[in-house]
Design a protein around this nucleic acid. Structure first.
Length: 465
RNA sequence: GGCCCGUUCGUCUAUCGGUUAGGACGUCAGGUUUUCAACCUGAAAAGAGGGGUUCGACUCCCCUACGGGCUGCCA
């Protein structure tokens, strides 16, 4: 048992972002690979933007990705009293002070500073004021941050990052309404939850310096930092809605298996030698902070598809069925009937090797999911010309008597092709069209085996001249 | 503006001072083939630019360019 504790701490202001999902995945892999704990905290202190729906969406996303967390979900908002308590403790320890400046005053200062090209760093006049002179007015609690020297972050991904303390201001920890700011809340929560490794987006790298100052002010141990680069869109720009799929749930609806998604997301921005396709167990064994790259990675759907296909092929039928059904539901398609379910299960062996995504698999499963009469799509009907239909009609009696094994079926169909002096391809096309109604499907022999003699003959009967 | 981070084939990346700069996805060519997928063979494809340090730099240092982040009583 190790004492490693990681966490994922999303704000419930929307869906689970693909970048957030990867951050969660990294935390999960790190903890799970080392016998540690992976905690979940919802940062819902922004009451105006936080919604229960968003929290639900995030949980759905995490569950779909297969990231299970330990213990209860922590609500940051519920811990506001504790945050305030810590702010006052800092005050008592002399690590913080009451600032009575109004927001208008500060805003005016900043505007003037900007206009004159001066630093907008705000220096509160109350930092060293005598408490006896304090007015009876609303105040915020500010950190009494060091003004001299440096604050150094030993980041596992970014290396040693040094900030001059003269660049950091006395951040507000407790607002004038008594509620905590994010900066304070994160530190208090991470400390109280025993978080040892903070693995998060590198948009927080600067914040790590500020947060370090709070840890110091409280005399707490600073966690190990690992700031991972954000994910960018295929064009290299920051991922946003115009890139299409930013929410994790959209990927489920597009028909990527969760295992493929985990593999892809793990490999995006992290590497382990030449390993590309790997299992969850391998990912857990191999994942480390050292292997995380320092540059933002772009989303590549082609590679995602490739890995997705490999995982579909590698999955057991038992694991595949529920995922396919979840995909159908997520993409708003009708559920499988009882008989479709068992038919599809029987056909999976010849489908999963040839589909990169679930919609592809479903398309190729048309032969088993549709019932007679099979309505051929446009391309399929083109191959069902009169001559081809004639040949199929001729084939029927032979199939009536053939033993229903792959070898005999191949021999039977082959014999007809030979009798007509045509290649197998010439007869497989129409056969496929008759059985599947599509020009894309599994092997015609696999379809016959899955369909069985009776259904196969019936479908051939349907296209008789 | 200030501070911080980043930059190897189209993309994800390996390399941790000495390699013909490797792999994967994608692409192209050929093969196999009953469609698709898969598979086999091969090919094209990279160190942002400029200075240093060094016998030797993708690797270390500096500058520039480009991209990103922070600079809130948002998270």
């Amino acid at each position: 048992m190790s004492d490693i504790v990681t966490r994922f701490a999303p704000s419930p202001t929307g869906y689970l972002h693909i970048g957030g999902a990867r951050t969660a995945l990294f935390n999960w892999l790190y903890a799970r690979g080392r016998g540690g704990k992976f905690l979940l905290r919802i940062e819902d202190t922004d009451r105006a933007r936080s919604t229960p729906d968003a929290t639900e969406a995030i949980l759905r996303g995490l569950r779909w990705l297969g990231l299970d967390w330990d213990g209860d979900i922590v609500s940051q908002f519920d811990r506001r009293d504790r945050h305030a308590e810590v702010a006052h403790e800092m005050l008592a320890r002399g690590g913080a002070y009451k600032c009575f400046c109004t927001q208008d005053e500060i805003e005016a200062f900043r505007e003037a500073a900007r206009a004159e090209g001066r630093s907008t760093l705000f220096r509160s006049p109350w930092r060293d004021a005598d408490p006896a002179t304090h007015p009876d007015a609303p105040y915020v609690i500010r950190l009494k941050a060091p003004r001299e020297g440096h604050t150094v972050i030993e980041d596992q991904v970014q290396g040693t990052v040094t900030f001059g303390n003269d660049q950091l201001d006395d951040m507000v920890c407790l607002r004038s309404d008594g509620t905590p700011t994010y900066m304070l809340a994160v530190v208090v929560d991470d400390h109280d939850m025993g978080v040892t490794h903070v693995i998060r987006g590198d948009d927080h790298l600067n914040n790590a310096a500020r947060q370090t100052q709070i840890y110091r002010a409280m005399g707490w141990d600073v966690p190990v930092w690992a700031h991972v680069p954000l994910i960018h869109g295929p064009d290299g720009k920051k991922l946003s809605k115009r890139h299409g799929a930013v929410g994790l749930e959209e990927y489920q609806a597009m028909g990527y298996p969760a295992a493929g998604m985990r593999n892809y997301l793990t490999r995006l921005g992290w590497s382990h030698g030449d390993a590309e396709f790997f299992s969850d167990a391998e990912a857990r064994d191999w994942f480390d902070l050292k292997g995380i790259g320092r540059a933002p990675a772009r989303l590549d759907f082609k590679k995602l598809e490739n890995l997705s296909g490999q995982h579909i092929a590698a999955m057991s039928d038992a694991a595949l069925m529920p995922e396919i059904e979840a995909y159908l539901a997520a993409s708003g398609q009708p559920n499988l009937s009882q008989s479709q379910h068992s038919d599809l299960s029987r056909a999976l062996y010849c489908l999963k090797d040839r589909a990169k995504t679930f919609p592809e698999l479903i398309e190729k499963a048309n032969f088993i999911l549709s019932s007679r009469p099979i309505v051929p799509d446009q391309k399929a009907s083109q191959s069902l010309d009169p001559v081809s239909r004639g040949i199929l009609t001729e084939l029927t009696p032979h199939l009536q008597n053939a033993s229903w094994s792959r070898d005999t079926l191949e021999a039977t169909v082959g014999a007809i092709a030979e009798a007509h002096g045509i290649g197998l391809g010439k007869i497989a096309g129409p056969l496929r069209a008759a059985l599947a109604g599509r020009t894309v499907s599994p092997s015609v022999f696999d379809m016959m085996l899955v369909l069985g003699r009776q259904e196969t003959l019936a479908r051939l009967e349907d296209v008789k001249v």
